[in-house]
């Protein structure tokens, strides 16, 4: 039972509770950045930040799609495989001499189609998203090796130009085109979530599916849509990854779904759905990127610390979500 007063209960120094996780992530990011700057002189270089974006652009795009799915209370394990499949397929089609524009269109269609199908199975047959997207993950990964057992290089001029184009001062601070694309995806994603009925239905569905149904919201369509959106984001992420590596490899992006889920959760989106922001996801991806950069800068720490630290942060944020959840009751 809550209080009988007409005014909402406010605490946390008047910060609305829904912003607490995002602010925690922002604080964490700033602290990590400050630590980096104080420890390593080169860290303060603006290009360090740009590089974080360049290296994690595709992760960011995929994470935006995952944010949609997790906001409905679902999960999409297939993203890593779909990223790899998209990259593989693009590389293979380009190798076959297809027009780059046509390749882009096809590559951008396959991911959402798979997502749409998974969404349909989840909605119509009421099978847990976990299992359905697991099958999707197997399927997409299997497709990768079905296309080719070894990595396919990309030599297409459009692809190489996309990979090499530097925006900004080419000798000074710059970002790649992928970063711009990632930003566009972030902005579109944030707009859809905040300003369209689809976006608000996503939140409603994650808040209380039963209520959403009784309020007459298109629950089924929304559910299918988020998996299609996640598929689309994975497809875009796959293309960005192929820009980045200029190849398609069957075993690339293995385990990426875990990084993506971790980024979304660290970004303050609640795994049970209904609460979270694309902006938080951006912060979550940045936290992951900065951890990697810090560990690279340190030199004495090894890469596996990344996983341990991510696991630790995941624990901390899940615990924070749980505590806020308890406070609500």
């Amino acid at each position: 039972m809550t209080t009988t007063s007409l005014t909402p209960t406010r605490d946390w120094w008047r910060i609305p509770q829904r912003y607490v996780p995002v602010l925690a992530t922002l604080t964490l990011l700033l602290v990590m950045y400050a630590v980096g700057v104080s420890q390593y002189r080169a860290f303060s270089n603006v290009q360090v930040i740009f590089n974080v974006f360049i290296d994690n652009g595709f992760l960011l795009v995929v994470a935006v799609g995952m944010t949609f799915v997790i906001l409905t209370g679902g999960i999409d394990l297939s993203v890593g495989s779909v990223v790899a499949m998209t990259a593989m397929m693009s590389a293979s089609l380009l190798q076959g001499g297809m027009d780059p524009a046509a390749v882009l269109v096809i590559a951008l269609l396959v991911g959402p189609t798979l997502g749409f199908l998974m969404g349909c199975v989840i909605h119509f047959f009421e099978i847990q998203p976990f299992i359905v997207t697991l099958a999707g993950m197997f399927f997409a990964r299997g497709m990768c090796t079905f296309i080719s057992k070894s990595s396919i290089p990309i030599t297409d001029p459009f692809w190489t130009s996309m990979a090499q184009e530097r925006i900004g001062d080419p000798r000074g601070n710059f970002v790649s085109i992928s970063v711009l694309i990632a930003f566009v995806v972030v902005v579109v994603g944030a707009f859809v979530l905040a300003y369209t009925r689809l976006g608000r239905n996503v939140y409603a569905l994650g808040g209380n599916q039963q209520s959403a149904l009784l309020m007459g919201l298109p629950v089924g369509q929304t559910k299918i849509a988020v998996y299609a959106i996640s598929g689309l984001c994975s497809a875009i992420g796959g293309i960005l990854l192929s820009f980045y590596t200029l190849s398609g490899a069957p075993l690339i992006a293995v385990g990426m779904e875990l990084d993506v889920i971790a980024a979304v959760v660290i970004g303050g989106t609640v795994l049970t759905g209904g609460s979270g922001y694309v902006f938080g996801t951006v912060l979550g991806v940045l936290v992951l990127g900065v951890i990697r950069t810090l560990i690279t800068f340190d030199g004495s720490l090894n890469s596996w610390w990344t996983k341990i630290v991510i696991g630790g942060l995941l624990f901390a944020f899940i615990l924070l979500q749980r505590l806020i959840g308890i406070r609500k009751k």
Binding site: T196, R200, N201, A204, N208, M215, K328
Partner: peptide, 24 residues
């Protein structure tokens, strides 16, 4: 049967939000 995670205004209008060009 409302969504506690949405604002009061949204709970009243969700599904019937006033929009311009699709934007709420």
């Amino acid at each position: 049967n409302l969504c506690a995670n949405l604002s009061v205004a949204e709970n009243i209008f969700i599904g019937r939000e006033p929009r311009t060009l699709g934007a709420i």
